[in-house]
Nucleic acid binder design. Sequence first.
DNA 1: TTGACGTTGCTAACATGCTTAGCTAAGCTC
DNA 2: GAGCTTAGCTAAGCATGTTAGCAACGTCAA
Lengths: 188, 188
Amino acid sequence: MSEPTSPPVSESRLGRKAGLTTASVIAAAADLADEIGLHNLTLAVLADRLGVRSPSLYRHVNGLPELQFQIALRGVLDLADALADAPDLATIAHAYRRYAVAHPGRYAASLRADPRLDEAAGRALAPMFALLATYGVPDSDRVHAARIVRSMLHGFVSLELAGGFGLPDSLDETYGRLVAAVEAGLRR
Amino acid sequence: MSEPTSPPVSESRLGRKAGLTTASVIAAAADLADEIGLHNLTLAVLADRLGVRSPSLYRHVNGLPELQFQIALRGVLDLADALADAPDLATIAHAYRRYAVAHPGRYAASLRADPRLDEAAGRALAPMFALLATYGVPDSDRVHAARIVRSMLHGFVSLELAGGFGLPDSLDETYGRLVAAVEAGLRR
DNA sequence: TTGACGTTGCTAACATGCTTAGCTAAGCTC
DNA sequence: GAGCTTAGCTAAGCATGTTAGCAACGTCAA
């Protein structure tokens, strides 16, 4: 018969092969980490979601630690995109929080210190340094100011994600005040 | 003979029994978490340190999650002690950071949200609310102000512990400025 | 068309970790 | 000393991460 000479689809999902790629595995892992939490992401559950047995993942990814690093890298890069071109502190701050809340798994992964993340991290921090320039913060103070701003954004978001704010008062309200307070500090 | 009628030592370590108690197991676990990191604390390594096989730990502790909770509880209580009677923001802030740096495992454990931690957490936060009163922050703003202060302290400490500050500039200097900025904000 | 080859996912197997079940013996009470 | 309580033990089961080697699929050249 006229055999299955179907067009050479690059990601054929018709046969027994799942058609995974390194990129698709990492993307699925990042999504899953956002859904169930980074520390609940196992190769077993990821393989299950991808319709594959866990050893098969090793064709595309070099083990769990490497996968976690890739999620972290993706997180930092995405965050850099989210913050890019933000014109003022309020925009940066809200984009930062929105990203972390939308992608808690990626965000959590991105916190690990790894020299391979440095370049991407620098890109994510660039808008913050640019911002400090617009406020006329002198060079010698930039590093300290950037650390302080980062501490505030991360501190709030981290506690929010951890469920650390017990009282029912509005988190949006608190965050608005935090941003306003930081801005006042920068305008000293 | 005059048998081993030795004084009823509550924690005899002479026989084959290791003489563990729930309290001593939790204390050892907390120490170990501080040394090797909370996520590296396993029952296996804890048992090893205590000179015991891991199933034996179940006589004293109800499994790993419960042990982690106990470390968290201990962390929150210790932190409450560290902050108690701190007269001003600078004292609170430096005690907070000193505790987290000295006990990173306990501190990390204490971040999990658990209703059973609420009472202890309230005790740890009390000095902060008392502080806000001395600054004349109105009742309606207290919750927001406390959250903001907490975000700043936790944000800095968390990034420091994670190795998130890459540049060599002095962290003490940054923290001093952060505390000063918060204080300025409270005096608005 | 066929056959060689590289790739992908598989099963089997092992190590480590958490946990439960049941045994043994140390040490206390009487 | 007899008996009870209990701390720690071994054995075993299950989950996960990981490696090794097998089998099927697709491709591509002859």
